[in-house]
Structure formats: C-alpha cells, structure tokens
Amino acid sequence: MVDILLITILLLVFILPFIFRKIEHNLELFLLVMGIIATVVSKTLSLHLLKDVFSNYLLYLVTAVVLVMGFVFNLTVSKFISVINSILGKIRIEIFVSIVILVLGLISSIITAIVATLILVEIIHLLPLKHKTKVKIAVIGCFSIGFGAALTPVGEPLSTIVVSSLNASFLYLFEILGVYIIPTIVILSLLSYFILLYERKRGYILVPVEELLTEEEAILKAEERAILELEARKDVAVRAGKIFMFIIALELLGNGFKPFIDKYVVNLGDKLLFWINVISAALDNATVAAAEITPGLAESQVKAILLSLLASGGILIQGNIPNIIASSKLEIKSKEWVRLGLPLGVILLFVFYLILFVV
C-alpha cells in the first residue's frame, strides 16, 4: 500500500503542474506539500529528518547567493546593460550566447553551478529577445551548467556526494565523464547558436540593446515586465524565499522516496536503471545518486548512473538547482520549460544509452 501511494505521489508531481495553472504558478508550495505527504507515507518524517534538512548548508548558501546577487544586479543593472550593449555591438547575439553557454558550462565545476546559473540568467534578462526565446536559451544553458558542474566535487551536490561515497580523487569524475560531458556542452552551445539563427528569421530578436539604456519605456516592456521591476528589492527577496522553499521541498521529496529507491531501484540491472533514473527529473538527483552510488560499483555502472541522472535532471524545473534558479528569476512556468527540456533530455538519454550499451 505504501509503495502504491508513493508511486501515486510521484505521478502527481509529474502531471499536476501541467494540468492546473494554480499549481504551475505555485510550484514551490505544491512540491513542499507533496514532500511532506511523501515523508508521512514512507514514515521518514521525524525531528531528525527536519534537523538534517534545515542544517543542510546548501539551503542557506543557494538562498544567500541568489539574494545577494539579486541586490548586486539591482544596483549595477545599468553598467551591466552597457557591457552587454558593448559586446553585442561587436559580435552577433547568436555567437555571444553560444560562447556564454559554452564557457559557463565548462567553468561551472569551478565557480559552482549556482554562480554560473546566476550569471547566465542576468545575461539572459538583458538580451533583446522575446520571452519564448529566452526560455529556450535558459533551458539549454541550464543543461550545459548541470553537466559541467558534475566534473568536480566543487560544482554541485551530486558530484560531491559521488566523490565522497566512492572515496575518489578530486579529478575522478572529470576522468571518467569528461569525454562525454565536454562534447555535450559544445553541442549545447552550438544548439543555442542555431536556435537563435532560426529565432532571428521569426522576428523574435527585438530592438537593439542600446534602446534599453535610453528609453525607460523599452525597459518596462522587455520580458513583459520591467528589468528594474523584476529586480526590485521586494521581488529579489520573494524569489530567494521561493528558492528556499523549493530546496526544502526537494529534500523532503528525496527523503520520502529514499526507502522506495533503496527497495526497488538500486538493485535493477544497469540498462533498466539507466531509464528508471528519469525519476530525477522530478526528484533531487543528488538524493538518487546517494542511494545508487556505492563503492562496489564498476566504473561503467557509475558512468551509466550519472549520465542518466544528468540528462534527466534538465527535463523539468524541479530536476536541478540551476533549473530552479533560472525559472524563478526568469519567471518560466513548467509548461514552458518542458517544451524544450523534455525532447532535449530524451534525445540526450538515447544518445548516452547508445554510446554506453550499444556502440
């Protein structure tokens, strides 16, 4: 009965945000409620669990960085616009965005996925693109950062947990995954280039950035909300609070499903486990990795688990920390994200499966 209830909760997490607009607009609260229900159903809710959740440094680090960077951007937005304006005066926007996604993906394992994502979204804010185009660039950028951050234990919690669980060296993940991840980041950057070429033909690249500096009205219309309004102090604080709630929700969901993962998922064969890991699109992939990664695994098994988790993590907003930050700051809804996140994630999964198990 418990297992059936947990499967039902997981299906609700996947489906309801796409059916009900109120849930889509209040995704953080919905996931928090689902997380609480999951821990109650699996009987993992306890004071000890709550203590662990609220003692997680990542909860406060991510919230603090988002809050501080939001205020910094609020104070330096005109200078930031000038820099973007200067760059776009020298190179085409397609090339600029492609370079940004490439560089941030490659260095995210050093500067962390959090910082890389904040840089990405602040740049996207100021690009003269329609909202639909910005969503596509954000999704591709978050995929790139999510993959790149996994190359060292500094980049994100998933890689930290894996290196710690295996008692591996600092460069272990780079050594076994670099040959897969670096080409993936390059391909993602090229994808952004060709998408923007197509969007230019459709007229989705808007006025030159210079106008954002000289006409207040143009600023108010960009992103359907003013950049200045979007980065107002109140909005910065509210977004940071939502991200705080989001992380708590994912922690509770992960812990609620951990007994189910330990019971059914961990012992599956490599090929089946590769596809089952698509659940990390809705759960915290670090939690799934913590359950599946053990010192007894062969290197090929570690590769399969991590590549499937990384590809799946970009499918939905709740799949990864970069997605959560980007969607919150750019006001991207679940339906908007999944239009590109789902096909891109599925394609990457099929490619990795062919490379790992067929070729």
Rank of each mutant, 00 (worst) to 15 (best):
S159I: 05
K134H: 04
L220D: 14
K136M: 12
L173N: 11
I119S: 12
L213M: 14
N167V: 04
A138M: 06
L177K: 10
I145G: 08
E175D: 15
L166F: 11
I111A: 12
A218T: 10
L126C: 14
L196F: 05
P208L: 02
V209H: 04
L127N: 04
E210A: 10
L158D: 05
G203W: 05
V154S: 09
P157V: 04
I182E: 11
G148Y: 08
L118A: 11
L151Y: 05
P208K: 06
I181Q: 07
E199A: 06
F147Y: 14
A113Q: 15
E199M: 11
L126G: 14
T160F: 11
L120Y: 06
F147E: 04
T160W: 03
V139T: 01
T112D: 07
L220Y: 11
F194Q: 01
L206E: 15
E156T: 09
S192W: 03
F194R: 04
L213V: 04
S192L: 04
L220T: 07
S108I: 08
T133A: 15
K130I: 05
S189R: 03
E122S: 14
P128H: 03
T214P: 00
A138K: 01
L171H: 13
E211R: 09
V209D: 02
I176P: 12
I107G: 13
P208A: 10
F143H: 01
F170P: 13
E175I: 12
S164H: 13
Y198N: 11
L151H: 05
L177A: 09
I185G: 06
E199F: 02
L102D: 12
S189W: 02
V179L: 15
E210L: 02
E217R: 09
L102T: 07
F143M: 00
E210M: 01
K132L: 05
I176V: 14
L106F: 14
N167M: 01
V154E: 09
I124S: 08
K136R: 13
I111Y: 02
V154G: 01
L173A: 08
V207I: 12
E215S: 15
V209Q: 02
L104I: 11
